[in-house]
Amino acid sequence: MLKDITLGQYVPGESFIHKLDARVKIVLTFVYIIILFIIDQTINYALFTIFTAMLVFLSRVPIGFILKGLKPMLFILSFTAVINLFMTQGETIWSYHIVGSWSLEITKEGIVIAVLMLLRLLYLVIGTSLLTLTTSPLMLTDGIEKLLEPFKKIGVPSHEIAMMMTIAIRFIPTLAEETDKIMKAQMARGADFESGNIVRRAKAMIPLLVPLFVSAFRRADDLAVAMESRCYRGGDNRTRMKQMKATYRDAVAGAVVTLFCLVLIVNEIIL
């Protein structure tokens, strides 16, 4: 179960998408999401599908990896689809009488909305996981830091936010491993995490959670000391080993996405 966490996982590579500047990638991902929620026309969904497929292809990330990231979302996806399917008013095409005035209905509009919602969520997950799959966590947080820099004037601690995110992402695999180890250690002492009702299961988590928190705090403390002893004191006047540089690639990517957005918006307006 813990092995399925692909959040924050990075698949190293040399593709066009990998080589894009992190700042550009973040901005374009935002554009991708916004446009995804603007479009409404079927033709636009078709174009969007092609565009997303092209991105996946360009990134060279194994398709299995992207599907694995979708697995934990399966419940939410199907839940949304089912709700939309039955809850949308409109032209009824199938109904099932339950009791009294209660009945289940599927409408034509419901089907359309369910499918569109499903696609939206699907592309939302795919688009954002493409960002994390092709950008190393370090570059990602550097990019966020840079993008937040203009807001420093109004008191946004951009460096601190970026550092917090870097550390959090860095510790996901460590904590997953730790959880696995503590679980095994308690199972060796006869703990049972799998059976019983909800209350029993929640109680069974205590032997796992207490050591996990203790170890997380210990690690945090160690890290803080290690950083301090290397004279870390926040972001002021820090220089970077890898300077971010936008290249012709970023210009191309930006142009393509802009063009794509224009086409979609024009479609929305004229159709």
């Binding site: 503590i182 308690q186 002492r189 203790v214």
Partner: peptide, 25 residues
């Protein structure tokens, strides 16, 4: 089985309760 760094798995309020965890289970 005693794991590597087994002290990291301690969780109870008292030493007694922690040692008793296995036999209680």
């Amino acid at each position: 089985l005693v794991f590597q760094y087994p002290e990291h798995q301690l969780f109870e309020e008292t030493v007694y309760k922690d040692i008793a965890f296995g036999p209680m289970n």
